[in-house]
Structures are given as C-alpha cells and as structure tokens.
Design a binder for these strands. Structure first.
Length: 656
RNA sequence: GCCUGGGUAGCUUAGCGGUAAAGCGCGUCCUUGGUAAGGACGAGAGCCCGGGUUCGAAUCCCGGCCUAGGCUCCA
C-alpha cells in the first residue's frame, strides 16, 4: 500500500444491525463507540471484531486500533462477553494477590476460559491448602476497587521489567515481535503485560473463587517445562458465584464412578487399570443396549460377525495401523514363538479380511458386517478415567463395503438411525465434521467426494454441525458424535467415517457390471461408540435413574410384614413371568426403612403390599419420583409396565 | 507419559511417631411394622506394595503400583 493511500484512507465498519459507517483508519474501538453515541462510548468495555463475513471474532480492548474494514460489536456490561472480560481481570486480581503473598512467583499466561480463568505461574510451591489465603488476598484487592489503567510501554522497557521472567520475554519476542510498544494493565501499582480488555476496576469483579490447582506445559508443548496452573472463576456477584458452585456440586453427584459404586454397576480394580469389570447390575444395562443395537443393525442390513482379539501383528501391517500404533506404544503386542502377536486395537482389518475372503459382485453391495468387537489400546495412564477413557473396550462396530455411487445414501441411512437412537435416550449430541489433515492418504477428489457426502447427509437431516478442519483420521473424513459428561467435558461416542485406506491397501475389489474389478469404499461406523463409554455417559445423563427398560432392578416388592411375604412373592412371580427384573425386600425393617432403601437404589417402582392389599387383591404403587397410588389393580399395573418398558419411555409414568 | 494432590473396614471419612476410630452397610436378637432412617448387641482393617529412618511408623524419607484434576495424546 502506498503512503498516500494509507494516509487518506477511511475504513468501513459494519455494526451488528447491518449498518455501516466510515471512520478514519486507525480509529479505536472506543472512538467508534463514541461516534455511535456518547452513552455507549462511556459504557464500552471491549469490542468484538472480525474481518467482514470471515472467521472467528476477536475480543479487543477499547484502545484497539481499527486498520482494515471490520465487523464490530461493542461489548458493554450488558453483553454476553462481559463475563469473559471480567474473568480476565479476575486472573489479574489472582496474580496480584499471589505476588503479594509470594513475591518470588513468576507469571506466564492467565486467560479467561469458558467457565472462569486460569493463570500459569512458576517459582512458587503452593498446593490447594494455600488457595484460601490467596482468595482472602484477592477479596482484599476486589474490595479496594482499584482502577485498571492501560499503559503503553516500549518493548525495551518491557524487557527490563521482565528481566527475570523468560515466559514474558518469550511473549515479547514472539507475539509482540513487530510492535514498537506493548500494553500493560496497572492496578494499585501492580502491573501485567496484557492486551486486554479488562473491566474498569477490580471492584467490578464481584466475586471470585479459586477452584483447583494443577499443571500445564508452557505453551501446551510436552517438551516444555511444566508450570503450576491455578484455576478459578469469577462472577459479577456472590449470588451468581454461589449458583455456579451449586451447579458444580450437583454435577459431582452425577459422576458415573460414584453412581457406579453406589448402584454396584461396575468396577475398575487396581489389577486391571483401564479395564471395566461389569457387575451383574451393570451387565444388565450393557445387555439391554446390546439387544437394542442388534435390532438397529438388523434394520440397517448388517450381518453380525465375530473376530478374535488375538492376532498376529502382521494383520495390521498392510493397513498402516501397525506402524501408527506401534510407534506410539499404543498397541499391546509381544513376541511368542518367534512371532509377533497383538491384541486387536480395532476391528476393521478383521472385517476387511472377511470381505476379501471371497469375490463379490456389484449386485451384492452394500455388504455390511457388525460386531460387538472388544479391542485393547494402551492409552496413556494419565488419560484413564472410569468408563469414559479405558484400555479395553467393546465397540458396537460395523463396516459397510459400498460402491462409490452408494456412499451418500448409506451415510444418510446410518445418520437417520443414529438420530433415532439418541432420541430414544433423550441424549443431546454434538455433530462434528472432521476434515482432511496433513497425514491424509488418497487423492484429493476422493476426499472431496466423501466429505461432501458426509456434509450432504448432515444437511439433508437438518443437523447442526461443527467443522473441525484437519482433524480427520489419515484414511478418510468422519462425522463424530460427541456427548458431554457431568463436568462438561466432551467425549466422542458414535461415529461415521469414510475409509479409503483399507480397500486400497488390502486390494479389496468387487466385480462390476462391466466384468472389471472395482474398488469399494468402506464406511466405518459405531452407533453408541463403545459400551463402556456409552454406559458411563448414560449413568451421568440419567444420574443413575435409568428408564425402566434399562434399570437393573425394575420393580421392588416391599411387604409390610411377614404376613404379606407370600402375597409379595405371588406378585413378583407374575411380573417375572412378563420378563421383569424384580426383587422382594424381606429384610427385618420398617416400611419406611425399605422405602428409603428403594429410593437409594433408584428402583423405578416400589410396590408396597400388606394386609389391606392382600385382602383386596390390589397393590400400593410408589415410583422413584416419590409419587404414590393405592388400591391399584395388578392387571392395570402390569399392562402399563409392559408398555412403558417396550416403548422405552424415559421416565416412570404410571403415576403421571 | 508429565505436574500437583490422594490411597485407613464393603462404602464415606477421622486419626498424621506410642495398643487403629466413626457413620452407613453387613450379621444376630428384640420388634411385625403402612409410604424417605425403630432398638440392642456383634463381626469386619497385612492402615496400597517394597525398602529406609526410629526403642517404636498408618503417621517421617526413598522407590513402585493405583487413583483424582489438569497438560499432552486420542490411530
């Protein structure tokens, strides 16, 4: 750009209502706000900017200079982004408090996050017990309501200030490489290198709390040194903070590891790290899921197969998986009789061999194999987490071998069934489209077609999805279905992937109409993902309150006293004849105590029977939502129960 | 794998150099009960594993295993 253009030019700023205004190049966000209205100017906390119609929004300080045409949103304390700004300031409040107590502490970076903020620090040895004292110091800083002032300093000054802080120096060297000056935020004489934005004063951070302390690599790189990361959160008011903390406490109650123990569903003993042991109650849930998925696989035209866990390592060599896994140490493999054997880390190679075992005509395709395939992966020890991240897992796996012209329809059919499944559980999933990465194999046109096919299917179904650029596996693009756990962490469960790798590497073919050999495409899909992860997600989703069809114990009979044991047995036998999982509580305890136990065990229905019911031939029904009805006709109840189970209703609704 | 916590009865936890505690659960007995905890008694613990320090270790130190939260990874 020539000098004259630079001087004369104005830029166009587009506002959220679609209107546009021209301002001198170099105007700040604050200038524009004042231009719109003095009131707005005074209220401006930050701006959100991005190039017109393009990409992600950046949150910037009011002092940020606009040098190109932009879209701009003014952020005030009424904006959704305000909390993010406030939390950034809270991170500064933390850092100041920390350095008051530990002057030797060195600061690295301290950004806001979705739920709060963190600050990475070093040079101090603190643990969770120290957080309270730091919080008290933070409260003091907030209480004092110091103004935050933005100060521009030269890079030389900044280097001097951070003489003994290599992290800040690295930021100055890299992020601020081309800048003549850099901004600091100063509060109460304490300062931090920072681009902002921030709220006007520390008092605007109404309430802050430190949550936990952990560690993180500098810049997230494994080879770098490990820093102490302190997580915290902040809100405008104590009330908002308390509400958030309450939600966190509720989330902890949903933890599948805790509920799994309470309901005696599963264990992961020390002798089998990452390998789930299903207890009888947990196995009931898994078996119900298996039967459900078998039905869905049949609907989709899959033929069930079974392939072994133990194979020679050479099985995975031609596909390229062996090298990938072996390098990462992710495969369980060992030498036996001078041969290398391994536990399968995935099922596709075995299924491909079943396909390749005979010649197939184009008329036979799609050919689909499903398997509840147990695989083992040597996940890093620090990654293991209950049922959600394990080393031994059983996938509800399936591979469809299709002609290229069948690809799109096959994906669409699968996606329809997947939606139906997640609706059955009332489970919200996030659809992610993962596209071609650097490690991709196969031609550009194939990737393009496959990605388009996945996209078309998603759009045909009207599904919202996120695109994750470059995240796909090396062998093809995929749709990932992510569920959130109680703590808001995302876990991939179901998946639909297009795979060019296997057919090519294993030279899979079908004979076409033209009597020539053609290459099929493989679709790899898992509807639930793995039973382990899915059961874990379900436990948290339902907080252990499973729908009737999944509940390990569906009905519990509570005889009031010994005189009604026989009647209870009679009713129980009748329910068992209908295929229900029933127990009779013959413990020597009061009815109140039995009810308490029934609720603790999250049994959907309790039937209280005593002399009254025995004489009248009725039942007293109580559900886990504490609703009750007396004088219930057993026929009516059983009929309802069958319908509730067979229709897979989510909640007990006899007492609605 | 890395960092920081943690591992005591089936579960949840207290104890933190001097003979190992509580609540729930479990067993026996009393009680025969009516919609979220009736009472009494009792059983139940190589205090994660190995080494060390000490007259003496659940407790302090070193190593390992497992685990929690992050980080990294997730074919």
């Amino acid at each position: 750009m020539s000098r004259s253009e630079q001087e004369s030019a104005e830029i166009t700023v587009r506002l959220p209502d679609g209107s546009e205004m021209n301002v001198p190049r170099g105007s700040t966000v604050g200038d524009v706000a004042y231009e719109i209205g003095p009131g707005l100017g005074d209220d401006t906390v930050a701006g959100r900017v991005r190039p017109p119609d393009d990409g992600d929004w950046d949150l910037v300080a009011p002092e940020h200079e606009l040098l190109e045409d932009v879209e701009l949103e003014i952020v005030t304390d009424q904006s959704d982004e305000y909390l993010q700004v406030l939390r950034h300031t809270a991170a500064h409040v933390f850092a100041q408090a920390l350095q008051r107590l530990y002057p030797e502490a060195r600061l690295a970076i301290g950004p806001p996050t979705d739920e709060g903020f963190y600050y990475d620090v070093t040079g101090v040895d603190i643990d969770e017990e120290d957080l309270e004292a730091i919080e008290a110091e933070m409260a003091d800083v907030i209480e004092a309501d110091h103004d935050l002032e933005r100060v521009e300093r030269t890079r030389e000054e900044a280097f001097e200030i951070y003489e003994d802080n290599r992290f800040k120096r690295e930021i100055l060297d890299e992020e601020a490489a081309g800048e003549e000056t850099v901004s600091f935020y100063v509060q109460d004489g304490w300062q931090d290198l920072c681009q902002g934005p921030h709220v006007a004063s520390t008092g605007d951070v109404g309430a802050a709390k430190l949550l936990n302390i952990s560690s993180a690599y500098w810049r997230g790189e494994e080879d770098n040194e490990s820093l102490t990361r302190v997580y915290g959160t902040a809100f405008r008011s104590e009330d908002d903070l308390e509400e958030y903390l309450e939600r966190r406490r509720e989330a902890e109650k949903r933890d599948h590891r805790k509920i799994g123990r309470e309901m005696d569903l599963f264990s992961v003993p020390d002798h089998s790290p990452g390998c789930v042991h299903y207890h009888p109650n947990g196995m009931v849930i898994r078996r119900e899921l298996e039967e459900y998925i078998r039905g869905k696989n049949e609907e989709l035209g899959y033929d069930e197969v079974w392939t072994p866990e133990l194979n020679k390592a050479e099985l995975w060599k031609p596909t390229g998986h062996y090298d990938a896994f072996k390098e990462e140490g992710e495969m369980f493999a060992w030498e036996q009789n001078d041969e290398e054997y391994g536990l399968k880390p995935m099922n596709c190679a075995n299924h491909a061999h079943i396909y390749g075992d005979e010649r197939h005509s184009y008329r036979e395709l799609p050919l689909r194999y499903s398997e509840f395939g147990t695989v083992y992966r040597n996940e890093q020890s620090g990654e293991l987490s209950g049922m959600l991240r394990v080393r031994g897992l059983t996938q509800d796996d399936g591979h469809a071998f299709v002609r290229p012209d069948q690809l799109e329809d096959e994906i669409l059919q699968t996606l329809k069934v997947i939606q139906d499944i997640y609706e059955t559980f009332g489970l919200e999933v996030l659809y992610k489209l993962e596209t071609k990465g650097d490690n991709a194999i196969g031609g550009e046109d194939k990737w393009e077609n496959a990605t388009q096919a996945l996209k078309n299917a998603l759009e045909a179904e009207g599904l919202d999805y996120e695109i994750e650029e470059g995240e796909a596996a090396f062998y093809g693009p995929k749709i990932g279905l992510d569920a959130r756990d109680a703590l808001g962490r995302e876990w991939t469960i179901g998946t639909v992937q297009v795979d060019f790798n296997i057919p090519e590497r294993l030279e899979l073919v079908y004979v076409g109409e033209d009597n020539e050999e053609h290459r099929p495409v493989t679709i790899h899909r898992a509807l639930l993902g793995s039973f382990e992860r899915f059961v874990g997600v379900l436990i948290e989703h339902f907080e252990g309150n499973f729908p009737l069809w999944l509940a390990p114990e569906q009905v519990r009979l509570l005889p009031v006293a010994e005189h009604s044991y026989d009647y209870a047995d009679e009713i129980a036998a009748r329910l068992e004849a209908e295929g229900f999982r029933v127990s009779v509580d013959t413990g020597d305890r009061t009815v109140g105590r039995k009810i308490r136990a029934g609720h603790d065990d999250r049994v959907p229905y309790m039937l209280i029977v005593g002399e009254d019911e025995m004489e009248a031939g009725t039942l007293s029904v109580r559900d886990r939502e504490e609703r009750e009805a007396r004088d219930v006709d057993p026929d009516v109840f059983v009929e309802h129960l069958v319908a509730e189970r067979d229709e897979k209703r989510l909640e007990p609704d006899f007492l609605d």
